[in-house]
Simulated assay, not measured.
Amino acid sequence: MRVAVTLGLPDRLRAAATVDLLAAELGVNPTALELLLGHLVTLGVVDRVGTGYGTTEFGAHLCADAGNGLHNLLHHDTAAGRADLAFVDLAHSVRTGEPAYPLRYGRDFWTDLAEQPHLREAFDRQMTWRIRERIPDYVAAVDWARFPVIVDVGGGPGDLLTAVLTAHPGLSGHLVDLEVGPARQNFSGLGDRARATAGSFFDPLPAGGDAYLLFNVLHDWDEGQCHRILARCVEAMPEHARLLVVESIRGMGISTEMDLVMLVHFGGQERSLEEYKKLAAPHGLVLEQVTEVANDRSVLEFRKHPI
C-alpha cells in the first residue's frame, strides 16, 4: 500500500486505466506493475474494471484528499512515510537504544526536515491532522484563563495556541519554533495578541510567561535532550509560572507501537508518569495535576518548587 500511495495509484485509478497506460504514465515496468495491482486487488484497494483497474471505495481512503491523514503517513516522500522505512533497522535500535533513522539516511530526522522543506511541510500537516479534531478537548481540559501569557514551545503551526487565544480573548501567546510561517498565518486574526519567533527550544526562550506549553515535544527526545529543553523552560519561567506538558503516558492507554516509533524515528520514547516526575525533578519541577484528554494523551501541570 505504501508503494501504491507513493505511485499515486489510488488517485489515478479513480478513473480506471489499463496496465500499459499506467506503466507508460508512471515510467514503471508493466509486468511488475501488474503484479502490484494484482496484490492490491487481494487487499481490496483496487478492483478489475474491464481490461484495467479502478480504485475501490475502500481504496479511496488512501487518496490524497481523503482527509484521514493516511496518504501523508504512507507516502515514501513524506516525513512519516520516509521515517517508517527506517523500521527495517529496528534491530539496530534495540541493540543500541539509538534511532535507526540516521543509520538509513546519514542524518537525523530533524536535520532532514530542516534541509528538505517539503518534509517539514508534510510533518506539520501530519501534526495538524493528528490533533485537529481534538483541539476543543484540549481547550476545555485546562483552565487557560489563569495564564495571561502563554509561551508555546515548539508549537509548530500553532493550531492549539490559536484555538486557546480565540476561546479566551483576554490572553496573549508567544510561539517558538524553527519554522514560524504557518503559525503566523494562523495568528493573522488575533492581532497583537499572538506572535511567533523563530528559534530552538535548546536556546534561551522568551522570559516572563505565565504558562509554558510543551505539546508532543519531550517524547521525541532522549533523556539528555529532554533535560536541555526543561532547563530552558525553567530558566525562562517566573516563580509563579506553570509548565504544561502534553504527552501520551505509558500505562494510560497509549499504543505500544508508539514506543517503537519514537525509538526508531528519534531515539525518544513514551514515558510513564513516574518517569516524567523523575525527568522534571532535577529542574525543581513538581507534578501538580494530571488531566487525561481524548483517551490517549494527558496534560501534566508542573510548578516550580517551592512556590
Rank of each mutant, 00 (worst) to 15 (best):
L90F: 09
A91W: 14
A91P: 09
V94Q: 11
R95G: 08
T96P: 07
T96C: 05
G97Y: 03
A100E: 06
Y101L: 11
Y101A: 04
P102L: 09
R104L: 15
Y105T: 01
Y105H: 13
R107K: 13
F109I: 00
T111F: 00
T111G: 01
D112K: 06
D112V: 09
E115D: 13
E115M: 02
Q116Y: 09
H118S: 08
H118F: 14
H118E: 15
A122K: 05
F123V: 02
D124H: 14
D124E: 15
D124W: 00
R125I: 00
Q126C: 10
M127G: 01
T128C: 06
I131Q: 09
R132F: 10
R132Q: 15
E133H: 14
E133A: 15
E133C: 10
I135H: 11
P136Y: 07
P136D: 04
D137P: 00
D137C: 05
Y138F: 15
Y138E: 11
A141D: 10
A141P: 06
V142F: 06
W144F: 03
W144P: 00
W144D: 04
F147Y: 15
P148M: 06
P148Y: 03
V149M: 06
I150R: 02
D152L: 08
V153G: 11
G154V: 12
G154R: 10
G155Q: 01
P157T: 14
P157D: 15
G158E: 00
G158T: 07
L160T: 04
L161S: 10
T162R: 13
T162I: 04
T162C: 01
A163M: 06
V164S: 01
L165Q: 13
T166S: 11
A167H: 01
A167Y: 00
A167D: 02
A167C: 02
H168S: 08
H168D: 08
P169G: 04
G170R: 00
G170M: 03
G170I: 02
G170P: 03
L171I: 05
S172M: 13
G173I: 04
H174R: 14
D177H: 10
E179M: 09
G181Y: 04
P182G: 14
P182F: 09
P182S: 08
P182R: 08
A183D: 05
A183M: 09
R184Q: 15
R184S: 09
Q185R: 15
N186S: 13
N186V: 02
S188M: 05
S188G: 06
G189T: 13
L190D: 05
L190V: 02
G191S: 05
R193E: 07
A194N: 03
A194S: 03
R195H: 12
G199V: 08
G199I: 07
G199F: 04
F201D: 03
F202M: 12
D203M: 01
D203N: 11
D203S: 14
D203K: 04
P204G: 02
P204Q: 03
